[in-house]
Simulated scan of single mutants.
Amino acid sequence: MIYQITKMDNSTIPLSEFLLHCVVESDKRNLTVCLLFFIYFVSLFGNLLVTMVIIFNHQLHTPMYIYIATLAVIDLANSTNLIPKMLNVLMHDSSAVPYGSCLLQMYVVLYLEAFESLLLAQMAFDRYVAVVHPLRYPSIITKRNVLAALLISNIVGAFAKSPFIFLANELPFCHSNVLPYCFCDYATMVHVACTENPKYLIILSGIVTFCGVFPLLLILFSYARISLAALKISSVEGKKKVFSTCLTHLLVVGLFYFPLLASYILPGTGVQLSTEAYNTMVIVGNVVPPMLNPVIYNFMTDFVLIYVPNIKETLSQKVQI
């Protein structure tokens, strides 16, 4: 049973906790729980394996694999932050979360989303330099530059999402403390709060545009240039390797960016999404990519060839041009 605080007037209720309630049909609940268990197991095993292999293999301490290890750590943190709580809510129909803990989970979700967005843009730029400017790759993509870029992305993500702590903290709640969601989510808090002030969702749309749309444009530009470079490769097999890898990478990028961007930006522009549609998009964007990333960013030879193309072939192509 779900208990909620209700007031007949519009006086603000001092909250000590939120009640989470997943909007999932009862006949689909068991299937959803099993699916989440499977996704979490695959995400945990795959990303832990990727991280440990890179840490203990000193030959993999290169810029390319530093990016992959960082992505694996982010995916581990995101999955662990979300899925256990979602399972708890689903299996018990609802779950009480202390107010401060709820705000913390909300912030961690937003911060990790921003960090991963900026990281994916850096990885796309890495591939762009490796394929389009291979001779300059060792001087541009160095360990020092990669670590500096990761530190900056970490700081930008942390500061860009910090306003939501203060915005959520000032939301007035006068009708209910029940969040119809599987985890603590900022936009859901705004919809439950008794306020019509559009600033709360407009700020969300603006910050998400900065942390999401601009990196996505950089990724699309990088892949477009990589595709043009692939067309100049004389080997048919080489072209297939480039295009197949680009398509699989773009699949993961699309599963991460498009559901999250749509769910965060559209409400701020006045477009109303149903609770089921919003929940589905945010959960897909946060849960599915961590499961697929270890499969996509594997350690097979084809993957290495995409990042470090044959210098002799590239030189001969440049001479022919």
Rank of each mutant, 00 (worst) to 15 (best):
L90T: 05
M91A: 09
H92L: 06
H92A: 10
D93L: 05
D93W: 13
D93S: 14
V97A: 10
P98I: 08
Y99T: 03
S101N: 14
C102R: 04
C102V: 03
L104A: 14
M106F: 05
M106D: 13
M106P: 04
M106L: 12
M106W: 06
Y107D: 07
Y107G: 09
V109D: 12
Y111I: 00
E113F: 11
E113T: 15
E113D: 02
E113Y: 09
E113H: 08
F115S: 01
L119V: 02
L120A: 01
L120M: 13
L120H: 07
A121N: 05
Q122L: 15
Q122C: 10
M123S: 05
M123K: 08
A124R: 03
F125K: 07
F125L: 12
D126H: 14
R127P: 05
A130V: 12
A130S: 15
V131P: 00
V131Q: 14
P134T: 13
P134L: 01
L135G: 11
Y137M: 12
Y137K: 15
P138V: 12
P138W: 01
P138M: 10
I140H: 09
I141F: 09
I141S: 02
T142V: 03
T142P: 01
K143V: 04
N145C: 05
V146S: 14
V146P: 00
L147F: 08
A148T: 01
A149K: 13
A149E: 14
L150I: 09
L151R: 11
S153N: 15
N154V: 01
N154H: 06
N154L: 10
N154I: 00
I155K: 06
I155H: 09
I155D: 13
V156S: 10
G157M: 08
A158R: 05
F159L: 13
K161E: 13
K161A: 06
S162D: 00
P163T: 13
P163Y: 02
F166I: 01
L167I: 03
A168G: 15
N169Q: 08
E170D: 06
E170A: 10
L171C: 09
P172A: 10
H175F: 10
S176N: 10
S176V: 02
N177E: 08
V178T: 11
V178K: 15
V178I: 12
L179Y: 15
L179Q: 13
L179H: 13
L179P: 05
P180S: 14
C182D: 11
D185H: 14
Y186R: 08
A187G: 03
T188R: 15
V190D: 11
V192M: 08
V192L: 06
A193M: 11
C194E: 12
T195L: 07
E196H: 09
E196M: 10
N197E: 14
P198L: 03
P198C: 04
K199G: 00
Y200W: 05
L201S: 12
L201Q: 09
L201D: 07
I207H: 06
V208F: 08
V208N: 09
V208K: 05
V208C: 08
